[in-house]
Design a protein around this nucleic acid. Structure first.
Lengths: 218, 218
DNA sequence: TGAGAAATCGCACTTTAGTGCGATTGCCGG
DNA sequence: CCGGCAATCGCACTAAAGTGCGATTTCTCA
């Protein structure tokens, strides 16, 4: 595609499925096998079963449901991702909840598909992630963008601050004390105190954590 | 596609281009016009020119370069996005820099394409964003995921904390004082102090901002 | 030229935060 | 049944942080 060559595409992409719904699992497995270059090497009902098999299967990619009985798909990613770097995790779920999306991606999933995604798109996603890219449905992408916008806190607020105040805030954010900030900026402690005071006034807060939350949005 | 119906697709999608390189601009414009349902209604060399024209053009989408002479494409998004909600901004650039990607998306861009993207993919992206989705190339998506993972700080660290310590940390993050936390958790101030002390010890830090940076990653 | 904003600094004062060194209670697993 | 951990609380002390009320200088812009 438009990618720089990440990993070279393997001759046959080995895919596993973890999905508790029998019908979906079997259907998806057989669908995948209809595509040349894709082989479904395992289908599991439970994350625990997959965890036990992953080492011998060494799949290139796994379609992972989130709402599983027992261990959740996200938990599974969390636990398996680091130990199995050759396997890419694609979340495969009905859930479009922003929190879950962010969770899954933050723990190392590289794809996130909704279950009603058309088979060609699923295959495309598998090829993408195995090739070193990321693949989300457009709606998931949009959700992610919204989270990004919300999560950034109000960085626009930074523009309300003067240059010196901004510098001060950046050091504040890194956990430096007034004394340390003064040394770094070649100012007296009192000046730093003054800048901080002004920041608080502009944002109507009364301590550091509140500023950080407001501006950088934790 | 696999989307829930966002906005209804307009009969003809009006697209504008902001791109300083003559060849790329003209080529892209004519390419777009070859697709049914897509009309290039304006092509600009500078963000300022586009800003002056957007109100009368009311494009559904705009392909926006980042590295422009004068005002940058990101700056343009920042200034125009809120006032023109009917226009979706797609960054169209050679730059795959993580910071810029995050910046652009955080300010409200809903697409991010690399310039070597094939025309069909560009058109697909335009249709996606106008339809209420988001569209990034797979490599940009991957970058975004990496940022997400890095940016989350070490949330895994949370697991090192006991239940009470976690509760305390959450309130700390919201800028509450020891006294306030004590009241909220029905504890004595000294107990809260004790929990905080333990948190600091486990993470080897010495003040609130440092914990927040470490765990939530500002 | 004159008002205002930005940047610098000072001091006295109160409130929080952080550290050191304890204690008791209860629960859980080997 | 015992050792360890979690959770609770106490106190004394030092170090920061935050507030109130100033000041001077420099620079810009109307």
């Amino acid at each position: 595609m438009e990618e720089k060559p990440g990993k070279p595409l393997p001759p046959v992409i080995r895919v596993a499925i973890v999905e508790d719904d029998d019908e979906t699992r079997k259907l998806t497995a057989s669908l995948l096998n209809m595509y040349p270059g894709i082989e479904c090497v395992g289908a599991f009902e439970r994350a625990e079963d997959f965890a036990a098999a992953i080492a011998s299967l060494h799949p290139h990619a796994v379609l992972m449901d989130i709402g599983l009985p027992g261990k959740s798909g996200i938990q599974a990613v969390k636990e398996l991702k680091d130990k199995h770097r050759g396997t890419e995790f694609i979340m495969f779920t009905i859930n479009e909840d922003a929190e879950q999306i962010v969770e899954a991606l933050a723990w190392g999933a590289t794809g996130y598909l909704l279950k009603n995604t058309r088979p060609e798109k699923i295959v495309e996603a598998i090829r993408d992630v195995v090739g070193g890219g990321g693949n989300l449905t457009t709606s998931v992408t949009r959700v992610l963008m919204e989270v990004l916008q919300a999560n950034r806190g109000n960085r626009q607020l930074l523009e309300k601050l003067t240059a010196r105040e901004q510098e001060t805030l950046m050091l504040l954010k890194d956990g430096y004390s007034r004394k340390e900030i003064a040394k770094k900026l070649f100012l007296s402690e009192d000046t730093v105190r003054s800048h901080i005071r002004n920041i608080y006034e502009k944002f109507e807060v009364h301590n550091r954590a509140q500023v950080l939350k407001l501006v950088f949005g934790v």
